[in-house]
Nucleic acid binder design. Structure first.
Lengths: 343, 343
DNA sequence: TTGAAAGCGCTAACAA
DNA sequence: TTGTTAGCGCTTTCAA
């Protein structure tokens, strides 16, 4: 049987060409052990390896050492513009350390478990979880399996897994404070799904920020998901079930755009008749009509930091901090109106 | 040395628990060889494997068989909304076959080569290349290394690698025909970079479509890249260097939005003063002001088909077709005006 | 500083 | 139908 193409150069070929033992080659080519090798031998080996185009077989090394130099990432939907920058951050960190990243799109949350199991079989060195379902038995499973893992964009309430998140409460406080400063009082909320941490966190953030200003949430509807369609449905319900608010804080940009759709259909103008805020500052929301006032998150850094934490864990260092909270920032555009200004 | 955590269950443990030989376990757990095993033994083995939580070590299997069940994808910029759906298509196809996908972000084209080399070391079973630089010595390298690879969103002019592409010429013909049918005659083009196949292909498409209608390209500027910023620069140049066209066909949506920026700054209204078309139908271009008339590509299918072709190649089947060309489709919105209609 | 030898977990050719 | 055996390419302990 000949599984590898004949062209494949192994460590044995290099050893032979260099006139040394394979173990010497192994040492010479391992940065950590290079010191054990005499300068001349080192040179000969490197020369031979170069000339033969030797490329260590990672599968063999993985089998021997148990380390694959590979991590897995679970994302709910790559197509959601929140995730590409996160992925980019993760990949940049991984690439800098010579790791590869398996990206999986977890369409259905129930698929997460089998995917993690396959990752386990693949012997990934660690996992970044960007999927957002709450109270996951998955966390249990991962913790029990002794896998290295970091959550991103979502904290682990059980405190067993490190996480990198954006400060959702602060984000909503920024939005609410902005609206209040513009003179708005009757403020509603289009909340995220209440079974994911960001959904409840942001809702609580809105409520708290309002309370801090001596106000109450005028009305609220929870969306089925973080999509434009879900935003449409929720906004429709909000209009039907409640007195119309002066402003609506939306759990994310897509939902805000869904709200735009419904408002336009009803002839309600943004921001003249109602102010709207989003969350994420996804690409092109500065180009929509009207340009959306929203909250910008450091998505790329979220991913980068998560990966860095993961590698700390993989390399056995003590994690410098268990939950990293990054700061969001308000981006004011034209979907919010100053009630004190001209009408 | 103990590389694996003690908890790891190997095929030996299963064999022992089931009271059979390891090779029997191997066969029993391999769908292709299950037939060789008696029903009783099969049951015992499966039971033992289940009870012990056995999970075959892919690294070991990879070392033995030379197959890693892993493919690599090279993407220029995950953040560009064209790529997530492509990636999704690839990943869906891979997941269905039990493969994992390494995603790499090739920021700088010169990094592609080292990445491919690392993929080679990782012994990926194949590669999908979504990077678009032309006349790549990379193709040479891949072909020589005997790697399985498929290009997506870009054809290989040398014809050595299979590819899945969208019909760029047809896309531009769709745009031009639409504009001509609206009464436009002085039509310009904001072209893509002329060192990538899509850039030249689309430009030729525009020219050809115009010629078919007995017209000539009124003016053209090539962009430095497929970004909004590049679109701004090119549109600025177009305005400065030429008589203003009635319509401009843009090489992609981002460039069209850059054109919007410049036109707005000059007080030129779209579509009243000039019509604009894009390409890609990226998310939210239906929400910008004015909603962009553009060309929709089957991005997800592009990725899916590329992956399916790759797997055909990996499994040694003859490729059913070498270059797959998918059809784009015109999406008419409000950035193009009928000159015959009311002004 | 280098070599010898064992073995990571799995698969497959061959034998029974 | 099952077992025996060898070995994929590499790393690492032990010995020299």
């Amino acid at each position: 049987m000949k599984p590898q193409p004949a062209s494949t150069v192994t460590i044995r070929d290099v050893a032979q060409a260099a006139g040394v033992h394979v173990s010497t080659v192994s040492r010479a080519l391992n940065p950590d052990k290079r010191g054990l090798i005499s300068a001349e031998v080192l040179k000969v080996v490197e020369e031979a390896a170069r000339k033969l185009g030797y490329r260590p077989n990672r599968a063999a090394s993985a089998l021997r050492t148990g380390r694959t130099h590979t991590i897995g990432v679970l994302v709910p939907d790559i197509t959601n513009p929140v995730f590409p920058p996160i992925l980019q951050g993760i990949e940049a960190s991984a690439a800098a350390r010579g790791y590869f990243v398996f990206v999986t799109n977890v369409v259905d949350p129930t698929l997460a478990r089998p995917i993690v199991e396959r990752m386990l079989a693949q012997r990934v060195d660690g996992l970044v979880l960007a999927i957002a379902t709450r109270d996951d038995p998955l966390v249990d499973y991962i913790a029990k399996a002794g896998m290295q893992a970091v959550l991103v964009n979502r904290a682990d309430e059980s405190g067993r897994l490190p996480a990198v998140v954006s400060d959702d409460r602060l984000a909503m406080k920024l939005a609410v404070d902005h609206l209040v400063s513009l003179g708005h009082r009757r403020i509603g909320h289009l909340a995220g799904p209440q079974n994911v941490p960001t959904g409840v966190g942001r809702r609580q953030g809105v409520e708290q920020a309002l309370r801090d200003r001596g106000l109450e949430l005028a009305c609220v509807e929870a969306c089925e998901g973080y999509s434009r369609e879900a935003g449409r449905v929720a906004m429709q319900k909000l209009l039907e079930g409640h007195e119309r608010p002066e402003a609506v804080v939306c759990c994310n940009d897509l939902v805000a755009l869904g709200a735009y759709d419904v408002l336009r259909a009803h002839g309600i103008r943004v921001p003249q008749d109602i102010s709207i805020t989003g969350h994420n500052d996804m690409p092109l929301v500065d180009m929509v009509n009207p340009p959306l006032t929203t909250i910008r998150l450091p998505h790329r850094e979220l991913g980068w930091r998560a990966a860095e934490m993961l590698f700390e864990g993989i390399e056995g260092r003590v994690l410098s901090s268990f939950t990293v909270v990054l700061r969001p920032e308000l981006v004011v555009r034209e979907s919010t109106r100053d009630l004190a200004g001209e009408p």
